[in-house]
Design a protein around this nucleic acid. Sequence first.
DNA 1: TCTATTAATTGACATTTGTTAAGCGACCGC
DNA 2: GCGGTCGCTTAACAAATGTCAATTAATAGA
Lengths: 236, 236
Amino acid sequence: MTEASMRIEDAAAIRELPLFRNVEQGVFARLIDAGFLQRFPPGVVLIQESDRADFLHVVVEGTAELFAGTGGRETTIELVRPVGLFILAAVLRDQVYLQSARTLERSLILMLPAESVRATLEADPAFMRAVVMELAGDYRRTIRDLKNLKLRNGAERLANWLIRAELEQGATGAVEIPVEKRTLAARLGMTPENLSRAFATLTEYGVRTKGARVEFTDRLALLAYAKPDPLVDLPD
Amino acid sequence: MTEASMRIEDAAAIRELPLFRNVEQGVFARLIDAGFLQRFPPGVVLIQESDRADFLHVVVEGTAELFAGTGGRETTIELVRPVGLFILAAVLRDQVYLQSARTLERSLILMLPAESVRATLEADPAFMRAVVMELAGDYRRTIRDLKNLKLRNGAERLANWLIRAELEQGATGAVEIPVEKRTLAARLGMTPENLSRAFATLTEYGVRTKGARVEFTDRLALLAYAKPDPLVDLPD
DNA sequence: TCTATTAATTGACATTTGTTAAGCGACCGC
DNA sequence: GCGGTCGCTTAACAAATGTCAATTAATAGA
């Protein structure tokens, strides 16, 4: 590894990713060694759609936003936080990225050369198996997202996002929105103005907002409105 | 193989799928031999979302519609025609389907038991490699679809669908819509009424419809309106 | 602390999309 | 050939979403 040394905890966290957990130690060391660990300030574009995929990126600290545009419009596809990676599919197929990525805050990113990743695929069947599972999971998450988008209106998408976030944050009856609201709006497929309106709609179901903090005063009412569906909202 | 014997051409077509092309002959024969080849009338539900994935399905003849619903609404995710398969990701992860599938016409379907597919994965590295590429491609197609949906309105999606279909059908200046219009509407993320309106909008750009047949009288105008983007509209 | 900047909200309005209902036309079975 | 069914289209209306502008709130710097 060049550019910077990794903290022990970071190295361990990467090693424990499903993608790398069962990779043979020597193979893993070689892959990591080919990589760069780099710190970026907020707002830096890490990859650009239409560029040939050159690195598999691992978010070690911070947040990366995957976004894409066409015809002058732009939207957010996904938010990647530690420890997560992007974009495996483009790297493996040696094709162009379909999404761009930027840092939303000061972030530490591990960059693994595409060629090394593909070499690792051939070097270790355990890695290939893990890649299969990872890609299948990526596909399924995207299908869920597509269903969410095609089958629900904005307020319903927000309600289900809140329910999921509250669970992930410890089921305390409150949610801290971890990004700017306009980013959340784009992630949910709407404009910032529309997100505000969606929050207003959810007031009726016990949703109270104070800045980035959202509280539930009537979970049952919110659940009844959101109608969460395990085939759309739950992780695998 | 049980249930029915396969025509030579069908067997060859399956063998030539990217997924199977490089699989060792014996391994391939064993996999196919574990499968069932079955003919279904139109409108038969082949798989149901939330069911455990039991088979990898290969469309040998006919058309399968992948669809999904939640909260009483329903939409079409994808149309699968010969020779194509569904749904590899669920089979490999041994999880529930996120999509249902039905035949749209009389169809010939090869059903490969999930367990056999997973066994083949372990038996032949060439198959595992092909699976990686297939899944990465599936993911990328879905991301394209998501971008299409989030970044364009209905008429734009229709225009780009028409341009793509015309190319695939031989660039004759005309397109034959291969499914019912309501199915196309659901595939494009709109209602049938909205699809009619979208066709009306495209009249201005030289699009003429007679039933399922669509003609372009002003390709440049249509292209200028649709603004096709290789990162959304082209296959990999 | 104050100020400048940016994000978020709100309201008015336009556009897009969905809904309901009616009518038209093609196809199928009798 | 006839009647019925079903898919498609059209119209009127309603709801959802986007756009633009103005205001308020939050944030970062000086």
